[in-house]
Structure formats: C-alpha cells, structure tokens
C-alpha cells in the first residue's frame, strides 16, 4: 500500500512536495494506475512519521492537479486519465516547464537537434516502461 514512499525532512523540498513528486512519478510510470487507492492519510502519516496534515496537503495538491480524486468516506484514488480535462492553464504550465528545460539544455551547450532527440528518447523510454508495467498487470 504505497510503502515505497520515502521522505527526508532535511531536504530543501518541503515534505508534502516530496510526496507529491513521488506519487506523480508513480502515476506517470504507471506504477499506480487509474482506480488504485492511495493509502489513508493517517496510515501514511503514521508510516512516514509525519504530521497527517502534511499528507493531507500533498493529497490536496494532487487533487488540484487532477491526478487523484477524493471520495468522502472511501478514500483517495488515482484518477482515470481519460477524465482529465486538459485546460489551457495545464498546457501553459507544461509549456513553461518545457521552456525552463530547453533553456537549461541550451545553456549547457547542447544543440537544438540533440536536445529534441534527448526529449524524444526519454519520452519513448517512459512510455515503453509504462507499457511493460501494464503487461505485468
């Protein structure tokens, strides 16, 4: 039940952000699929030895990002990606993030073509990992 989530308090990233990151990544890699139940707030808090409010905050953040949905009384579940309504804001945010990466890449001396290739390769790797995870299931 998501016992693989690890946090480290001494990090410059707030604890709730670490949880958000790990769950987001797991969803992206299909290690968590649509309909999977995230651990109960209290259970995860007790497991990680952190304030339950921090877990609640992480879940709330994920919910705002539409990655998860909370059903009162049942718990928090990974959303069905088909239910994502990608709005202009989501696309804009993604574009901004891409710009940051592109800037970094060009700054360290990569050619535009190499950068684009790197993007393509990594995306393919991700997707194939996703597919193999699905096959396992």
């Amino acid at each position: 039940m998501a016992l693989w989530i690890q946090i480290s308090p001494g990090s410059d990233k707030p604890i709730y952000a670490q949880i958000v990151e790990q769950i987001s990544e797991a969803i992206a890699k299909n290690e968590l699929s649509a309909g999977d139940k995230l651990p109960a707030v209290r259970k995860l808090a007790a497991e990680l030895v952190i304030n339950p409010n921090t877990v609640a905050r992480a879940y709330s953040f994920l919910e705002q990002g539409k990655l998860v949905t909370t059903k009162t009384g049942s718990g928090t579940f990974v959303s069905d990606p088909r239910l994502y309504s990608r709005d202009a804001a989501d696309i804009n945010m993604l574009a901004e993030r891409m710009d940051t990466l592109i800037t970094r890449g060009l700054n360290i001396g990569l050619e535009a073509g190499d950068l684009a290739a790197m993007f393509r390769d990594r995306t393919n790797k991700f997707v194939s990992k996703q597919k193999s995870e699905e096959k396992k299931k």
Binding site: G10, I15, R42, A45, A46, N51, P52
Partner: peptide
C-alpha cells in the same frame, strides 16, 4: 503523531532538531 491523530490534542515541544520539527 499518535497523539496528534487524537482529536483536539495540542503539543508544544522545544527542539534543536529541525528535522523533527519539520516532520511533526
């Protein structure tokens, strides 16, 4: 944390260890 999960409990603790403070 066990105490925190009980309703209406308040804790004041002094500490040198910021990691503990950040957790709890």
């Amino acid at each position: 944390i066990e105490i925190i999960m009980r309703e209406g409990r308040t804790i004041l603790f002094s500490s040198h260890i910021l990691g503990d403070v950040e957790r709890v």
